[in-house]
Design a protein around this nucleic acid. Sequence first.
DNA 1: CGCTAACCGAGACGGTACGTCCCGTCTTTAC
DNA 2: GTAAAGACGGGACGTACCGTCTCGGTTAGCG
Lengths: 188, 188, 188, 188
Amino acid sequence: VSRSGLDPRVARSREALLRAALDELAAAGYAGFSMESVAERAGVGRSTLYRHWNDRLRLISEALESLNVQPRADTAEGPARAGVERLLGHLTDAVARGPVAGVVPALVHASELSREVAVFWHAYSLQRRAALVEALRRGVDSGELPAVDPELAADALSGAVFYRRLMTPAPMTADEVGDLVATVLGPS
Amino acid sequence: VSRSGLDPRVARSREALLRAALDELAAAGYAGFSMESVAERAGVGRSTLYRHWNDRLRLISEALESLNVQPRADTAEGPARAGVERLLGHLTDAVARGPVAGVVPALVHASELSREVAVFWHAYSLQRRAALVEALRRGVDSGELPAVDPELAADALSGAVFYRRLMTPAPMTADEVGDLVATVLGPS
Amino acid sequence: VSRSGLDPRVARSREALLRAALDELAAAGYAGFSMESVAERAGVGRSTLYRHWNDRLRLISEALESLNVQPRADTAEGPARAGVERLLGHLTDAVARGPVAGVVPALVHASELSREVAVFWHAYSLQRRAALVEALRRGVDSGELPAVDPELAADALSGAVFYRRLMTPAPMTADEVGDLVATVLGPS
Amino acid sequence: VSRSGLDPRVARSREALLRAALDELAAAGYAGFSMESVAERAGVGRSTLYRHWNDRLRLISEALESLNVQPRADTAEGPARAGVERLLGHLTDAVARGPVAGVVPALVHASELSREVAVFWHAYSLQRRAALVEALRRGVDSGELPAVDPELAADALSGAVFYRRLMTPAPMTADEVGDLVATVLGPS
DNA sequence: CGCTAACCGAGACGGTACGTCCCGTCTTTAC
DNA sequence: GTAAAGACGGGACGTACCGTCTCGGTTAGCG
């Protein structure tokens, strides 16, 4: 147990439970998230769940870390505007589909209640945003884009996507991304 | 009950309970919101609470409607840019302070889980946004502002404010609003 | 609720639960006594059980009090020896049959662990013993019985009955009672 | 394990565990007896415990057998009454002090629930009682004691001691033994 | 001004989930 | 090959709320 590796049962349980926790979070939200039903989803005893995480917050926090996959820094080359559009396209997609999508509203809420979740969520957002800021800065420096503040432009662009997802019934679609960029950064 | 008005006891209870519900929502979030403690805050019996709203969602929905105060449509005159800045200033303030502030994350979350809450929340957001769109459209039409799509510009401007509030540890401040507007609509 | 009478639901629940608790005590003993199964026996929700008694000890204590029925003081007349035999006959019966029988070993054990149970059990025993002591004293005073110490004689007579019940596989039978009395108090 | 003897580690563990089991029994009673804490008391892994005894009852049964030390049959000579008093003195002491004392109530209770424990406990009691019966019979046969039934007299004498221990708050003391014997067997 | 209808608080009721503890079984690693 | 460590599924514990319900007591406001 100590040095080289874990008991394979532990690995199996933890994996199944973390996956189940994300499913539950997407299905039931943060309120309504039930340890009982996570265990059931995972096909694992309730006590096994509690053996690894003493309460719901610790489970959720750790489950979220498994989302923490670096989006590729694929914006280093080519026209800056295209990079920005690509990143926003990814974001548009991420908030509509995939494991993160269902979890975003729960995260927004949970961040308000739990320091730990907030730290994760802000870090996660910061990372996405950093790529966008970088692409913007590159475009501004090269003169390809107008002389906007890259930070505020990133807030506006990302914010529009989240705004449409969380405050309106109509999330942004892929083909609106170009228009959005044109609106904020001027026509291409 | 019939014609002229409600039993004053009912009015008293409802009012106290709605106020208490908002307090509770801000204090405990949507998860953690407890009917028990709403009744206690209001100094009212639990059964009185359930007499008026059968479950937590209906109480919350109705409590939120009491927030639905029209931000004044005071943007019909003067320079469009100033009107936009004023509206965004109000929004910045609202999401940072006051009764709405604590409730926004809970609403975002609850909208995901409840049709009713979603309808309310989207309508509420739409109303704020409509004023902004109108101001933008006026500016674009008059040539005072660049020829942006007012809808997308409104998403970007509002979105930036929400983005900072919900996805980062540093909400937007009043003095950043001018820069934000400059970023999206170009320098004044 | 306050003055004259209780909510009839309360009376119904309490009665069913106390009865069920005694059944459970007899069936499963003190160890093995399960609140869960008491509630089920009584056909009552688990939460109802806990509403009335916060833990197992309080339930058991109160259930035992319902056993506290005065054995009739029917020894005041007639020959003292006959009175003694009658009381011992009752005891022999009580430890073999009836609601007390199944509960005695659990009580002996529980008394060791709980002050409250011990107090009840000692009081209960004392009451039975007091009647016996009184009958013996009357016989000794009148010269009908030999000049034994009534207290110690009562210990010996009661003790024999319990000894046979708890420490041997063969409880005392009704027809042995006469011989027992003859052994301790001399032949009639 | 095979021919000559046990693995000394096994012997060590078994011994420590049996001792710990008795401690635990005395400390926590039969209810409240925890395998977990026996293992801890013995400084041994929980799985080691379960390797030797599959469940709590077998452990307790075997632990109790280690108490099964013959009280010395030192009553074969001298006056019968003195022998009886000596045996009762031992019993009085045993139920008040030493390893047996704390375990008697648990045994009484456990006997009700487990065939195995009952067999052990009845055998253990029978053995003590046999010595007493023998001493009484000797006294009756020699004419030193009145012509009582030795079996019933033994029940009464032993029973008195247990009665005081288990059903009253005041166990019998050494100096009451003489009076007890006088009560049952007549004055010396 | 007195009656009646409604509203009120208190709180019992059956449920469900919580997080904890221990059971008896089991698998894995270290000596 | 046995011991120690400890994961596993299971189940009871006592707590906290849920949403429903029954109960007397009190307050309108109408007739």
